[in-house]
Design a protein around this nucleic acid. Sequence first.
DNA 1: CTGTTAGCGCCTTCAG
DNA 2: CTGAAGGCGCTAACAG
Lengths: 339, 339
Amino acid sequence: MANIRDVAALAQVSPITVSRVLNNPEAVSPETRARVRAAIDELGYIPNQIARSLRSNRTNTLALVLTDITNPFWTTVARSVEDTASAQGFNVILCNTDEREDKQDEYLSVLLRKRVDGFLFVPARSEPDAVESIQRQKVPVVVMDRRVPGAEVDVVRSNSEAGAYGLTRHLIELGHRRIAMLSGPFYVSSAQERVDGYRRALAEAGIPVDEHWILEGEFTVKSGYAVATRMLARAELPTALLGANNFIALGAMRAIRETGLRIPDDISVVCVDDIPDWLVGEPFLTVAAQSPYDLGGRATELLLRQIREPGVHAPQEILLSTELIVRRSTAALNGNHTE
Amino acid sequence: MANIRDVAALAQVSPITVSRVLNNPEAVSPETRARVRAAIDELGYIPNQIARSLRSNRTNTLALVLTDITNPFWTTVARSVEDTASAQGFNVILCNTDEREDKQDEYLSVLLRKRVDGFLFVPARSEPDAVESIQRQKVPVVVMDRRVPGAEVDVVRSNSEAGAYGLTRHLIELGHRRIAMLSGPFYVSSAQERVDGYRRALAEAGIPVDEHWILEGEFTVKSGYAVATRMLARAELPTALLGANNFIALGAMRAIRETGLRIPDDISVVCVDDIPDWLVGEPFLTVAAQSPYDLGGRATELLLRQIREPGVHAPQEILLSTELIVRRSTAALNGNHTE
DNA sequence: CTGTTAGCGCCTTCAG
DNA sequence: CTGAAGGCGCTAACAG
């Protein structure tokens, strides 16, 4: 593969002149410029960005470290990140941690070696260690979707507490009192906050919280299915169920159907996170919808600002609101649908 | 940020010894090794992969150039690619072309400069130009999902023709004769093949093909909606509709519902590409399902083999089969459901 | 407007 | 087992 010296030799100029033709063409006379361009074409020369990066300390590459691209919420975030980044000349490296700290730490280590210009990061744990390990190398980070108590870092996330509160309140208004909460992992801040919102709505309505109805699991279809199955084997069943995210609710819905119960006639189901309506013919789930495209875009913009304007920034927290969308998965306790 | 010389100075050895501790620890005596390791920890030294890449001509990075990560088919492919790549020490750069040749070419150019080790590529056009521009630089490529007539390149794709044939035949067996085909762009090989399969099934059944029922559009929900809306405004309506992919079918379904028609009572709908069943509570669409996880994994393995074993390989074509899954979006022409 | 020198951080080659 | 020299490809800084 031809390098800058090959081009220089063919065009009978010095390498730096070739470099100038590429990066600052006005600084070169039209004649030499044309000669250099001809040589570039003839050799099919493609500048080596690695060598350039070694000098400039810039890779024009961002790391996107999330839990699972397969979840439509993260898919949309990823699309938004990539759109925003590529519009400004940055590429995006995609990493799925599956919420596993070992995978996450391995990715961070590899990506720091690769000298990515910044991280869009969904931490698997609430502890600030991972974020700090990035910041210690003076590499910009923006945390998405979750809080990291103790870390001084930009965060873009949705108001999970309010989302879960609104959903729970909606169920209470429909007459439900035995509402199960299928939570995500308690060590994830967004899971905690969704439980908090659930508790607040119950407390406000004077309904005592029965800890048996709060069940911890993972943010996956499989886990939602397993936890719901376990719950449905109990003597007393809930009349409504709040999934901490879309996948938990989808898993739970499958479990519910398998036991022969009907939604919403026998049990109402709601969750945080929408499923894009164009993905499902007729949207069914009542949800507290987040705005994943916004989330990804805002986070990327914050990150690019940090990269472009190095120096100390006061950490920002951007809190996006959720929207309650009532559909056909919820019904009043007497059995009538809500619509 | 500390470099190898800082570490060497602190450990009172030469830089090359530090390098050996990192890459070939056995070649260094335990005492020096320990001293070097201590220095590495003290300085928080992280090896610079850029410098290493400049020497080794390896970035351990693959490019994944697809149309739209937002389509669950591609989401699954991307997940599979990332799983397979990261298990073997490679990262993945994600690029969405939206089938636009200008975006695609810009990505290819940037990625060639970045010296990615290989491309997993979904070409926006059937012409071999783009593939050849990669191969000219001696960079390994594997094409996914589409044929590129004229290019000598590894391809992993599904049997689109057979998939569309099976779907059309299923509709014919249900008594349908006026079957609309909502195609993707004719310049994409998979779109062509799906039309071919549709034609073959009709021909086999002795049903003349009415070209008015073959409509070209894009592989998006929006386009499917637009094309279907136009079609539904005609005097004569089809009794069944074959979407060239899932998104076209989803858009068409929305258009159908908006006109007050019911699926499958008034019109049956089928498509190539499944929508993962865990995404939708109750799967509805009758489809010819592809295996996107397989597709991504096989393609990545072919690519990694090219990278590990440079030299000339005879181009391979891996053809994955599709599976007809009959669900509730199709009914016999008399109006009875199929189940 | 063009060129020389030097160095980004690392590792291969060859000596000791 | 350890080190010195040199170069991967490119571009600042400094001439001319």
